[in-house]
Design a protein around this nucleic acid. Structure first.
Lengths: 365, 365
DNA sequence: GCGCATCAGTAATACGCATTAACGATTTCT
DNA sequence: AGAAATCGTTAATGCGTATTACTGATGCGC
């Protein structure tokens, strides 16, 4: 019989002054002469479950309207056991001052898709670790406040990421990330895009094409080379190691002489991979200029990606665009699926070929 | 004695399969061998009230870290505490496809300042009303999940905003917003900036200057005119109605003839206000070109703001830059103060003069 | 008339956390 | 020594809403 003794109401401190009597469901209920549960049922508007008479429904709705009732999102989310929050984490500031290098295009897609699915976004950055300011090893822990989290950029520490994944926290990485077992990611289809670029060059009449790439084993690089070679093969053009120039320092090793050598050998088109620095592309342009070659007429150039922002002006570069916005949206879709407990995958997002002024038919030999 | 009968646990439905239970305080407590209340006390980190032994504190912190515990923001809010979340709400997409119209520069400042103060940002997307797409009267209600909220753009419905303010919910509007009583806002000091532009022109030797403005009564417009006139006055130059050309359709009414007329009258410099469309500035440029006037040499031009993005290339325009980043930061400061219950105000943020190539000394008469 | 299904609505929880009265164990005071 | 103060921790409670299980009141069929 140990009936709990009446306490002198512990718990809540007196409401702070600011709290105007924002109406609660219970007040709506009192005004309508029904129970709080009924109010909840009516306002939820679900067709299922308990049935409510039309009269009661109207009474409740009238009462709610007259009181100006708005549901408390905190309570709603607490009861629903889901916050409808998706995290967006970028190791560098999400909004770097340099707009060009920003994740902006991704965010466009992320926001759209998240909004369409009724999620709000929580923005995290590597620098903001919740007040402490010191990006400790548990910096990524904060993202757990969301239902799941998107990661932008390849700087997210693998260890922490692994930890999140291992704990079953829904995580999606934007950009291919194979090396991390179990990490979900979305990426662009560099293979197909690179192949298409080659196909276009071949269609223009080019018979010998050389790829300029840096000395890097990132998936983004190997995928491009792979697609490049597949493109050659599909067009029945000579592939093999001779078709690829790989250099750790293309800006020095890709000389005008070497370029001239290729051209004398019958090479009429060059393709460069895109990298953060744009090194391969820069080197290629420089070599062409130094060699005094007329770009669209004597030699065709294409870029497997977009030119670096500082080279953005000038003639449009033949190549392909990475669909960053669509990647962002795809990432949200995948993440939403994971949050819902589904075992989903998103296909690679295809890139869009960009025809430009740097490629044309080969010179009549 | 009516002891409540044991129910077969109503309430929560079983958690969806995918959800690996995010750790709760109770689990941290179990692992640390203490009660949930103790965990809460330790994590709250308050110096006041109950005291906790150093040993217990460490046990709890270790347990929390090893589980990757992060408090649930909704529960925190509901328990009448704070969740260290600041909302950012924009009725239109925060990241529109058109980069130029975005709130991006504001976000840079918002993020920096929020991070520095230990807040995380929640992006409430206006268009997303829970997937339904229909923006109900409580579209803004979601922001109550955060401790306070920033509003971007003047599309936020006044009614809902007023409601939030009335309920004592901390709200800060970015951009002047006087008409809404009690709404806190931060804005740029157009008056001083405009005055400075005039001062600079006067310093170059201009003695007659005319302002081209549209027919608008927005604060942003009247402030600029006000500053312009103050600048004239300070320089001892002729002001009055003759110095201001106000037109609802400047692109048609600001003809080359009219411009020539002013120039023949001794006007050597023109100033245009910045608007969304950039109408005044466009009209001015067109008129100058049509009149065949040589811009820096025969006539000086200045813009009270930044040129519209599609006119961004070409020579640098003399005028001033709106410090969007600093505005964002100021907004966060103000909001943080409001959240803390202080009665704060932020001063107007001053704009930065931008010297350009469109203004120079007047022609030797 | 007596079960049985249907309908309308309510009571009782639970969600996760913060808060505070109360409590056991010491230590200190008178 | 007994009372009182101190310390460290816990039990109990509330925040506002969503979700059942359950209760009365009808209506139905035989």
């Amino acid at each position: 019989m140990d009936e709990p003794r009446k306490r002198s109401r512990p718990g809540r401190a007196p409401a702070p002054a600011g709290r105007t009597a924002r109406p609660r469901q219970s007040e709506v209920a009192r005004l309508a002469g029904v129970s709080q549960a009924t109010v909840s049922l009516v306002l939820a508007g679900k067709k299922q479950g308990a049935t409510i008479s039309e009269e009661t429904r109207r009474k409740v709705l009238d009462a709610a309207r007259s009181l100006g009732y708005v549901p408390d999102p905190a309570a709603r989310r607490l009861a629903a056991a889901r916050n409808d929050l998706l995290g967006v984490f970028s190791f560098t500031a999400t909004f770097p001052t340099d707009v060009q290098h920003s994740y902006y295009p991704f965010l466009v897609g992320i926001e759209q898709e998240a909004a369409a699915r009724g999620y709000d976004l929580v923005l995290f950055t590597g620098s903001s670790t919740g007040g402490a300011g010191a990006a400790g090893p548990d910096a990524l822990s904060r993202v757990r406040l969301a239902d799941g989290c998107l990661f932008l950029g390849r700087h997210a520490p693998a260890g922490e990421l692994r930890r999140l994944v291992a704990d079953g926290f829904p995580v999606v990485h934007i950009g291919r990330r194979d090396e991390l077992e179990g990490l979900a990611w979305v990426g662009a289809d560099y293979v197909s895009a690179s192949r298409e670029v080659v196909a276009r060059l071949a269609a223009l009449g080019h018979r010998r094409i050389v790829l300029i790439r840096e000395d890097d084993d990132a998936p983004a690089s190997t995928d491009r080379e792979h697609g490049f070679l597949k493109g050659l093969e599909a067009a029945g053009l000579p592939g093999g190691p001779a078709a690829v120039f790989r250099s750790a320092a293309p800006e020095r090793e890709l000389t005008a002489e070497r370029l001239r050598g290729w051209m004398d050998d019958g090479v009429t088109a060059f393709v460069a991979e895109e990298t953060d620095t744009g090194g391969a592309w820069r080197a290629l342009r420089t070599a062409v200029r130094d060699a005094g070659a007329d770009c669209p007429r004597e030699v065709s150039l294409a870029l497997l990606g977009s030119p670096p922002p500082d080279l953005a002006d000038g003639p449009r570069v033949t190549g392909f665009d990475i669909p960053r916005t669509r990647l962002g949206a795809a990432a949200v879709r995948l993440l939403a699926a994971l949050v819902a407990g589904e075992e989903a995958t998103e296909p690679l997002v295809s890139c869009v070929f960009r025809s430009g002024a740097t490629a044309g038919p080969p010179p009549a030999s």
